[in-house]
Design a binder for these strands. Structure first.
Lengths: 270, 270
DNA sequence: CTGAGCCTTCCCCCAAGGGGAGAGTCAAGC
DNA sequence: GCTTGACTCTCCCCTTGGGGGAAGGCTCAG
């Protein structure tokens, strides 16, 4: 009797390398139909070819082996389909992001790179309604959406006295994780659920307004930073953003306005 | 005098991590404006912020550091733009490929996975005009195009007696490099330039026709392989493909026909 | 019998970082 | 001027999904 396909034959049939097949076996992704307990020879069944191809496809989409393992370990076809769709959703997201990045890069390289000039503004202390949390950079958008939704639910339109905003620790960007606070000036802040009353201290802010979608907002950050550095100032503390015109106001991202304010202090001279 | 921005300040301003900035320095991508020769401290200039942002964008698009270095090392703006566009072209290609892979995966997971059944065919020896070469898997498509162009140039339409085809060593896929031969049956094969006369031996082939674009041709390969394995046969030697309807005939990939033939021999029984 | 194929184990390599150790440096406050 | 704490330096190891190679031994089929 034929014990099955040898690893070399199976490699030829699936166009995977022998090495890679051994790796997939070790990772538990594609266990040979039979392993000779005496010789250790791997024997594959022709029925395993489709599985090998699914693995190949998912790997081409950069799904990590662990994720593929989770997909393949699932028995229920519906659940398996859902897992795959989840991965595919991530792929589509990555495609969208790549497209946006290409556009942003083109803008970055085009010579017309001017815009409103930053300025210095002193703001007084005030109290706002806020939601805070320690957040990973990757989750920041989702976290912002949920926090702002809670804030909006707690304060109907007539109680709001200004544009929504956020305060973001610098480590959020440089270390990938940090304290995020979203807030909204309202007539009478009061704590409720995740919402708390936040006292914002008086500060001197270097301020600039970013126009358009956020794909290349870091360019504006860079201009603000260069302005700060060029004026014998230094950044001190978390950045503030406020969104006078944002996604909540119009779907046309080109019309968005984002005000960026960085607390600064005057350098005494080094 | 201020010697410039410390690495931490520059990290905050560009939203890059300190570690990453050090790496970019080491790679020569973003050399600090000044490095204190005594302490080794890096000091950056505000003017370097735009460069950091270009690097960030290109990295988001998965352009390798070496490629970014090449872009940044170029003085001529036009040439630099061309390099960037080249990278962006690669990105678009990758996006297209990812989309095709997603479609192929969906097809692979959808239950209706039937098609024409493989069959066994005995072909006699024949002589064809061919171009051969040892090729890396990644270059195979480009190599095919150039070889087939030479073949087509040597034999005008009225001399051709059949569809173009190719013979591909199995190692091309399992080891990433192998012998590739593209050929075309013609009335009177003769050697000229890279074109040589190739004698194809008589063989017994397991044959199946693949319909549509080549994104998921490996599924058809898998079905053929499973059929071979299920009929007490084994693969022996390089696969043959022929393209009765291919890119040369129609731009509509859905109408392509690809005949896959694998030389097989009957297993005597293990 | 012989050669090809397969087994494990070991080491090194790539990319683009992250984590952490141990030591040196800077600037502010006292 | 000194201390202190934050910052920075270099150096080494870890990650992922492979690829390359070698050693040393077994097994399979013609």
């Amino acid at each position: 009797m034929r014990p099955g396909l040898t690893i070399g034959e199976f490699a030829t049939l699936t166009r995977l390398s022998v090495r890679t097949l051994r790796r997939y076996h070790q990772a538990g992704l594609l266990v040979p139909a039979r392993v000779d307990p005496h010789t250790g020879y791997r024997y594959y069944a022709a029925e395993q070819i489709p599985s090998a191809q699914v693995i190949q496809r998912l790997r081409e989409l950069d799904v990590p082996l662990a994720g593929i393992g989770a997909v393949l370990a699932t028995d229920d076809p519906a659940e398996r389909g859902a897992l795959v769709e989840e991965h595919l959703g991530r792929v589509e997201e990555a495609l969208d992001r790549a497209r946006a990045t290409v556009l942003s890069l083109r803008r970055l390289l085009s010579p017309e790179r001017s815009g409103p000039s930053p300025s210095l503004r002193t703001i007084g202390a005030r109290s706002v309604a806020a939601v805070s949390g320690e957040v990973d950079r990757g989750e920041s958008l989702a976290w912002y959406a949920s926090a702002m939704a809670e804030l909006d639910a707690a304060y109907p339109r007539e109680e709001r006295t200004g544009a929504p905003g956020g305060r973001y620790a610098n480590e959020l960007f440089t270390a990938g994780r940090g304290l995020m606070t979203v807030y909204r000036p309202v007539r009478t802040p009061r704590a409720h659920g995740r919402v708390e009353v936040l006292g914002l201290p008086a500060a001197e802010l270097a301020v600039v307004v970013h126009h358009g979608p956020h794909d290349d907002i870091d360019v504006t950050y860079g201009r603000l930073g260069a302005w700060v550095a060029g004026h014998a100032l230094a950044v001190d503390g978390p950045v503030h953003e406020s969104y006078p015109v944002g996604p909540a106001d119009t779907g046309d991202a080109a019309r968005w306005r984002t005000e960026i304010g960085w607390p600064v202090f005057r350098i005494t001279g080094r």
